[in-house]
Write a protein that binds this DNA or RNA. Sequence first.
DNA 1: GCAAATTTTAAGGCTTCTCTCAGCTTCTTT
DNA 2: AAAGAAGCTGAGAGAAGCCTTAAAATTTGC
Lengths: 225, 225
Amino acid sequence: MRLLIIEDEPGIAGFLKEGLEEEYFAVDTASDGKSGLDLAMTNEYDLLIIDWMLPGLSGIEVCRQVRKSGNQVPVILLTARDTLEDVVFGLDNGANDYIKKPFEFEELLARIRVQLRNRNDGDDSLKAGELMLNPVTHQAFCGNSEIVLTPKEFSLLEYLMRNKAKVCTRSRIIEHVWDIHFDSDTSVIDVYITFLRKKLDAAGCCGLIQTIRGVGYIIREQDNQ
Amino acid sequence: MRLLIIEDEPGIAGFLKEGLEEEYFAVDTASDGKSGLDLAMTNEYDLLIIDWMLPGLSGIEVCRQVRKSGNQVPVILLTARDTLEDVVFGLDNGANDYIKKPFEFEELLARIRVQLRNRNDGDDSLKAGELMLNPVTHQAFCGNSEIVLTPKEFSLLEYLMRNKAKVCTRSRIIEHVWDIHFDSDTSVIDVYITFLRKKLDAAGCCGLIQTIRGVGYIIREQDNQ
DNA sequence: GCAAATTTTAAGGCTTCTCTCAGCTTCTTT
DNA sequence: AAAGAAGCTGAGAGAAGCCTTAAAATTTGC
């Protein structure tokens, strides 16, 4: 999952980046409104974390511009201001959530999870057939037996699961899971798909990841009932 | 927009109901967990507002049950508790947002608006008679049975479907689907039309692709009803 | 600092897809 | 009715894309 942090205080930005990367997010950062907006407009993120007070373009303005372009990416606003008008103003200008500094990292994480799960079922865990992923504990299960995955394997599977029933193109996968923004003729994806399939098959979740030739991969619930 | 408020304190419940009705919401109320859950399960709401502390079933428990049933309706949790664990616990158990008592009505309104605006169930699938094409998942269906198509087959069919009821000339097809911009006396199109017809027929979608001799092809809804 | 685990690269093999070609059928015109 | 034009279809060569494996590079943990 790929996040963008727009925050001018290097301390906070660094702290967030580090913490979120430990949680296996792919994190980009920007230190002012303009460059942040640029990044947000030219790349595809799964979530934006934007500080209200930014040099140049304000966080609200960034948020508004992003929305104006039709982009529905979830936005969490980070702020020291907490008067009623501020909260309402922020939410009405496109933010999905609002968190007041100083905040605890755990709470931010929980709120990020909420925003990311909205696309899916409404339960934190991701399910497809027998397979179940728990993004909080970074565990995968097939039925009751745990499947041990490496971090990259988990990230890839998580991305596929969060986009269950949608095609994940190779370029999106390489962007969201590997955070690579340029063309490259690597075959890491193939290799990791092989890894995953091997482990899933061994655990009993067969045929879950399907290839769409020339496009990418997709996870589809088996339609046998 | 139809809301359900589950709140045991009559004062707060009444205040909310009144205020929200002034905002043109249709509001139902329940004063305990069990009856609230009943209502939520048997009716279709656009949003639930649930107090954490309820007699009988707790708000969290109601929230969890609703989710367990597969219902993705947005939930805002109303609470006096505000320790870190509580927030995280609430969000992780299915709530979409969390608002601390005492709150200002304006803020609640703003948060409701956020939850309600997040829904774009854009079903952009293409249909013609029995045939249904989903460009997002790269799947084609005839009724309920899937038709497996190769990338080129899919592209061609997609192009025809997007121009449903319009004639697609050979030169346009070769431009849009094959990206060939010069005259060429290839017969790929014929071949692929054959492929498609074969697969569509096998699946039960007969006669959908019609030939316009000397011009091209067209997909027409069958006019038998 | 070393060993183990993880990630990445590279290459060969294999499957599947694409497109040409040639013969055939259908349609149109005279 | 015949001849030419346009479209249909099956087979097969070549190409593209994907899978797999092994080994190199990097990171992590002790």
